[in-house]
């Protein structure tokens, strides 16, 4: 049977097409779906629903409490956004350093999330940002914390008929200083998949006490993950080098790195310690105090 192709002009129309054909594949920037087609890894493709003409999914909007990024916003647009660079540094950084110019022009933040690669660059940034995924179907709209979005490699909480509409990035409360850091290492500067990627956000009050800490890490489990046990080390304490050292020393126990063509699990265990230290130091503002990092 030949493959069906739809190119809905609105989000509602896309939901209607998907409702009738829940086995069709959603196509956004194509940077993950098309290589699989070209490598003949997709068996029994029934149909494609191309989302690229849905304007409402391409918006970046600042609200009082949060910033909304539509699922179809490309990495190139995020990389060019001064708003996101100022107020969602890690999300900006992930897109700015992702892939290559041509990949950033095509690939979308929603695609990166739904692809659910263990090493997804936007995934760890959104985990650290405490972001919420806006998921919609014809019957239900729901907001799911990104930390609960990934189920397994390539698997998410999206149910048949649902489309990821966008993400909400909560803003820090008044009186809270938010520090961010994104650290990644890959085999090439351009193009390559991350060997380890880490995003850290630390919220400190005026007294310098850590009120919240979120650590997103990639390629250390079957999905991008939050490292909750390490986050707890810092909460309600004053950020210090000794706490950072403690987190670095404990990280081994909470990760199960993947072993693939990009790097061995052994190497990932080594390198995460270096990146974690850098990330915590930068996000807490301690990095400038000491040069050893």
């Amino acid at each position: 049977m030949s493959v069906q192709y739809y190119s809905p002009g609105s989000f509602t129309e896309a939901l209607q097409v998907l409702e009738r054909n829940s086995n069709y594949t959603l196509l956004a920037g194509g940077t993950d779906v098309v290589p699989r087609l070209n490598l003949r890894q997709v068996k029994d493709l029934q149909g494609l629903i191309y989302l690229g003409n849905i304007v409402e999914m391409k918006k970046i909007v600042e609200h009082n409490e949060h910033i909304f990024i539509g699922a179809l916003v490309t990495h190139a647009r995020i990389a060019a956004s001064e708003l996101l660079k100022q107020k969602a540094y890690n999300v900006w950084y992930a897109s700015y350093h992702m892939g290559t110019p041509a990949i950033r022009n095509a690939g979308t933040i929603g695609g990166n999330l739904v692809n659910a690669s263990p090493a997804g660059d936007s995934c760890v940034a959104l985990l650290a940002a405490g972001a919420l995924a806006s998921i919609k179907s014809l019957h239900e709209n729901r907001l799911v914390p990104v930390k609960e979005f990934f189920v397994d490699k390539g698997k998410t909480v999206l149910k048949p008929g649902e489309i990821l509409y966008g993400v909400h990035l909560p803003k820090a409360a008044t009186g809270i200083k938010k520090g961010c850091s994104y650290q990644r290492i890959g085999t090439l500067k351009g193009s390559s998949t991350a060997i380890i990627n880490i995003a850290v956000e630390i919220e400190q009050d005026t007294e310098g006490m850590c009120r919240a800490c979120r650590i997103g890490a990639g390629a250390v489990a079957s999905t991008s993950v939050r490292l909750y046990s390490l986050e707890e080390i810092f909460v309600d304490k004053k950020m210090s080098w000794s706490l950072i050292e403690q987190a670095v020393n404990e990280v081994d126990a909470y990760i199960n790195p993947i072993d693939d063509t990009y790097a061995t699990a052994w190497y990932r265990r080594k390198v995460i310690k270096v990146l974690l230290k850098r990330a915590l130091a930068e996000a807490s503002g301690l990095a400038s105090e000491q040069e050893e990092v």
């Binding site: 192709y5 190119s7 194509g30 087609l37 290559t100 990949i103 022009n105 193009s191």
Partner: peptide, 24 residues
């Protein structure tokens, strides 16, 4: 989409044409 040998401009933006499905 790794090598860029197929790169073209699509509505003025650089893309890898190997990752662009023709109907889009």
């Amino acid at each position: 989409g790794d090598c860029g040998a197929c790169a073209v401009l699509l509505d003025g933006e650089l893309v890898n044409s190997c990752l662009v499905l023709a109907p889009t």
